[in-house]
Design a protein around this nucleic acid. Structure first.
Lengths: 113, 113
DNA sequence: TTGACATATGCTTATATCGGAATATGCTAG
DNA sequence: CTAGCATATTCCGATATAAGCATATGTCAA
């Protein structure tokens, strides 16, 4: 077998730097494909293809205006990522708690020999 | 050209489901390679390779204990994710604000027709 | 309708992995 | 030193894209 078939997965979508660049470029608000092409140094088909991936995953949406498309970020779709991160932060703080308990025990016992 | 050479990039590292699975398996604390192999249904070489990637990116670290290796998560390396997400949360809340303003306008006007 | 512009799509090539199997390395016990 | 276990590494074939180029599609203006 080969690479895991994980396309159309939010994590995979943001796993590529160019797509993160595109998302970053959209932080200020909706933008035209051409504007993104100008902002970043990418070819138009390249941008369109990455936008397609981002759209399939739901990270961006668009509306037509004449012959242009205005793309915008769909920040709510970052929720899975957010949730994923939260697990580790919880694990981390629990770990700090345990360390805290340990340190307090040491204090009560007068410290290690 | 082909796929962007973005290995040894934290975002790329978590872009693959199996590596996220491994990280999840390590949430409870440090674990042996063999333990991970048992937990997830993956071959030992497969797990070792993914651990290598995660290690190169700094998302895990390990200590030797006899002939075993105990791997653990390195939560501080999650900071880039946190920072990146923070940008979009701002965009997100701004969007909620705009929606709020819009809703208030509707209220003052007596609602849409 | 034609022309010009904006964007999407199809085709091709190059390449980065992924996964599997076999093997190497490292450590410990006896 | 040898056997055996735990893990890493190498070699391999398969495949999923990424990027480039050319082209199709769609929209507006005249």
């Amino acid at each position: 077998m080969a690479r895991a078939a994980t396309t159309s997965d939010v994590f995979n979508a943001i796993g590529h730097a160019h797509r993160r660049d595109i998302l970053d470029a959209l932080i200020g608000g909706e933008k035209t494909v051409g504007a993104i092409v100008d902002d970043l140094a990418m070819s138009q088909p390249q941008v369109s293809k990455h936008l397609r991936v981002l759209d399939e995953v739901g990270l961006v949406s668009w509306r037509a205006e004449g012959s242009r498309r205005l793309y915008r970020i769909e920040p709510t779709r970052l929720q899975p990522f957010h949730d994923w991160l939260a697990n580790y932060e919880q694990a981390w703080s629990e770990r700090l708690d345990r360390m805290d308990v340990y340190l307090k025990e040491l204090q009560q016992q007068g410290g290690p020999q």
